[in-house]
Design a binder for these strands. Structure first.
Length: 453
RNA sequence: GGCGACGUAGCCAAGUGGCAAGGCGGGGGUCUGCAAAACCCCUAUUCAGCGGUUCGAAUCCGCUCGUCGCCUCCA
């Protein structure tokens, strides 16, 4: 298997030290509804995780909750509630959204505020080793103490300095130094420390949690491309300076960012930006296919037309699963499709080609089904491979439909009309139902109905 | 200003040196009482533009145009 490593800027063979894969993905800062950007990283790394498990690795997946941070504090103060309560509320909502998207729950979900002791330990260690210094109750990381600072984002200190917007803080020795510990300010939550009351900086949180739960060297660290600098760059600086071990992370993976597109489009879409809004209209499978239908490292622009297309595609996959051939007769062998799927996934998670393979398999299943051969195993393979991408291929909530008895009554009436060759009346029933969003299909096994979203 | 990504059919999107995956949409056909679903056929002589390297380029190099990201909080 090959994975594109942001650090080396090329695809590398994935060779973890053993069958264990230690994976850390930067989670959310919960101060509002989760949006499509969150869905993007969650779905991408969920697929990565599922595929690694499929390949036989034992994966430990850690995803943190940043529950102390400027935006949370600001928002909580505006609402007049404790920061912790705000964070908990939206963290819970986030995981509800994740469940709705069929994203597996992380093995470990550390909350930053519960990991302060580990952060203090790391900060202390960094001061002792000369990588950090105290100034007015705050602690800063001394960027110049790390010769290869900038290696992840592929920039040098000089080039960063020339980005004119960096203002030297009066406390800092050097403009690019970043805060490990921020001295307490009025109206902000704070914790005791050897340097006085304060709160942790954002970057030290992830470093501490990764070190605590996964160890000094981890296999995969993921996040959005917007986190490469400064967040992940700083994580490297902190971790490698603290442990003295390199690399902190063997494979850095970053997904492309979700774009909202131009004003015109988002307007015509009625402002679909939260996960909930999308799931009101489309199935989770469709949304996942929309996300995974483009490569994870490319940016993705929200397009209602594209999600619509994905929904029809998802429907096609579901349909193939529902179409049964005859058992016992000649069987369709799906191993070539399975191999193709593995081959494209092995190349830096080629989910677009993997989905294309699914469609190829679907065509073959349907084709063979028409001939009346046994597609049971092939359909099981389809379901299995789709599952690696987190697709359920289940009909979205068909069960609890209050209108079901009435629809079935109409169907049986229509059946009698058709038997009596009263086609005009029969068609009228079908047309009226279609107007209400209910489509009928006359199959050899009888009439089936579906409610379209 | 610095660093970087991208520009492939009506739409979405793979491919990154050897005759342009896949999905949606569209057209035609088979099946059907008619539909739907499904299947079959067709739908980019061409990959933003212009030069160059090469036996051969969407794929490599240069320039131009355009879109976007990061450099500050962000998945």
């Amino acid at each position: 298997m090959k994975i594109y490593n942001t650090l080396s800027a090329q695809k590398e063979n994935f060779l973890p030290p053993g069958s264990q894969v230690r994976m850390y993905v930067c989670g959310v800062t919960p101060y509002d509804e989760s949006h499509l950007g969150h869905a993007m990283f969650a779905i991408v790394f969920d697929a990565v995780r599922r595929y690694l498990i499929f390949c036989g690795y034992k994966v430990t997946y850690v995803q943190n909750i940043t529950d102390v941070e400027d935006k949370i504090i600001e928002r909580a103060n505006t609402l007049g509630i404790p920061a912790r309560a705000l964070a908990e509320k939206f963290a819970n909502k986030f995981f509800e959204d994740m469940a709705a998207l069929n994203v597996l729950k992380p093995d470990i979900i550390p909350y930053a505020t519960e990991e302060i002791p580990k952060m203090l330990e790391v900060i202390k260690g960094l001061i002792d080793r000369g990588h950090a210094y105290v100034a007015n109750g705050s602690v800063y990381f001394r960027v110049k103490s790390m010769p290869d600072y900038g290696k992840l984002s592929h920039r040098t200190l000089d080039s960063m300095k020339s980005g004119a917007r960096v203002e030297p803080g009066e406390e800092k020795e050097f403009p690019m130094d970043f805060a490990l510990w921020k001295a307490a300010k009025p109206g902000e939550p704070s914790w005791d420390s050897p340097w006085g009351k304060g709160r942790p900086g954002w970057h030290i949180e992830c470093t501490a949690m990764a070190l605590k739960y996964l160890g000094e060297q981890i296999d995969i660290h993921g996040g959005g491309q917007d986190l490469i600098f400064p967040h992940h760059e700083n994580e490297i600086a902190q971790s490698e300076s603290f442990t003295g071990k390199k690399p902190f992370v063997r494979y850095w993976m970053h997904n492309g960012l979700f774009q909202l597109g131009d004003v015109k489009m988002s307007k015509s879409l009625g402002n679909i930006v939260t996960i909930r809004q999308v799931l009101e209209k489309y199935s989770a499978d469709a949304f996942r296919m929309f996300i995974l239908g483009s490569h994870y490292r490319n940016p993705l622009t929200l397009s209602e037309e594209a999600i619509e297309a994905a929904e029809r595609g998802a429907e096609r996959l579901r349909q193939a699963l529902a179409n049964t051939g005859k058992a016992g007769s000649e069987k369709l062998d799906a191993t070539t499709y399975r191999q193709k799927f593995i081959e494209v996934m092995d190349d830096d998670f080629g989910t677009p080609q993997a989905i294309a393979t699914l469609f190829d398999l679907v065509r073959e299943i349907n084709r063979v089904n028409e001939k009346g051969l046994d597609t049971g195993e092939a359909r099981a393979t389809l379901k299995e491979l789709a599952g690696i991408l987190g697709l359920t291929l289940e009909e979205p909530e068909q069960t609890a439909d209050d209108a079901a008895p009435f629809i079935e009554l109409l169907i049986s009436t229509r059946k009698k009309l058709r038997e009596a060759k009263q086609f005009q009346l029969a068609d009228e029933i079908r047309d009226k139902l279609a107007e209400m969003g209910i489509t009928l299909e006359d199959t050899p096994q009888g009439t089936v109905w579906k409610r379209k979203k």
